[in-house]
Design a protein around this nucleic acid. Structure first.
Lengths: 158, 158
DNA sequence: TAGAGATAGTTTAAGTTTCAATTATACTGG
DNA sequence: CCAGTATAATTGAAACTTAAACTATCTCTA
């Protein structure tokens, strides 16, 4: 990108270059995905909550947050908005009264079943710019990358 | 991930799986990167602006926004905050009076020169969970992915 | 050359994100 | 048993993001 000015050693340069590419692809995919989701009146994080609950069943706020790599204070707002829309509901946890169960309402479950397959198609369409082999390889590398990060920086990643 | 409940065809499933992995790695990297940047009193997007200006020199709001894949309305706020901090400044563009040049102040340039190399090291450290060969392959795939998306969905990507 | 349409940047409103502080509850070692 | 500590969720403040509306300016064409 920057064809001039600075260089901080091959390794650091490569690393930054890769990070930029990763961020760029992520931003592009996020935009495509969000546009699709918006058509159903949901935001990206709202959809992520519905998707998690739809696939894995009711779970506590904390688990939901961990699944989304999002800090706690945040889930409250997202769930608040979904609750206002009548798509999820909170229920007291009896064994641990600090905790709260979140689950889809009937309406939420209906929405999930309706829009999820369409959204999956949308993502698949985007991914079709890669061959199956490339997608497989990319998937493998991303998995190793993610696991490696979790392992190497357990503290800095909360 | 979801070991049960739903399946929407191998292709869509794989696509979603890859998208989840990509989002996860991005979130992890973003967190590491942001923690590092915060030590210098900057947010991630503020740093991105300083980095662009530091590497490529003064540019207009629009170009800055495009470089960051961010909608226009947004740059205004980020630049506002950087201007308040005395790190960048606006200057009227004489040829086109709708446009504005953004450039680093002396203070902003000093900060850039000081923190950029350290941040590059931080990113390189994170990336070291992959071998050089893997990093090269990942970089290639991400590049192809990103270019492919831009080519296939020019409209949906603004 | 005047008017129509495009463009650069700002503003506004709603949502998301993080961090830090707070509340309520649970756990645990002396 | 109970004081100290840890945990689950919420709240509040500051920043970011988007989309849409708006202002000012430019450009192109009839």
């Amino acid at each position: 990108m920057a064809s001039h000015s600075f260089s901080y050693g091959t390794k650091a340069d490569q690393a930054l270059g890769l990070w930029v590419k990763l961020a760029r692809v992520h931003a592009l995919m996020l935009r495509l995905s969000a546009r699709d989701i918006n058509r159903y009146g949901l935001t990206q994080p709202q959809f992520a909550v519905i998707e998690s609950l739809g696939h894995l069943g009711p779970m506590k706020m904390k688990v939901l947050g961990a699944k989304m790599l999002v800090t706690g204070g945040n889930m409250t707002v997202v769930v608040d908005n979904l609750e206002k829309a009548g798509l999820v509901e909170r229920a007291r946890c009896l064994e641990d009264r600090r905790a709260t169960w979140i689950r889809l309402t009937e309406k939420g479950d209906g929405l999930f079943k309706k829009i999820f397959p369409q959204h999956a198609e949308c993502v698949a369409g985007a991914l079709s710019v890669l061959t199956a082999k490339e997608a497989g390889e990319l998937s493998r590398l991303l998995k190793k990358f993610g696991m490696g990060l979790q392992e190497k920086f357990p503290d800095q990643l909360r």
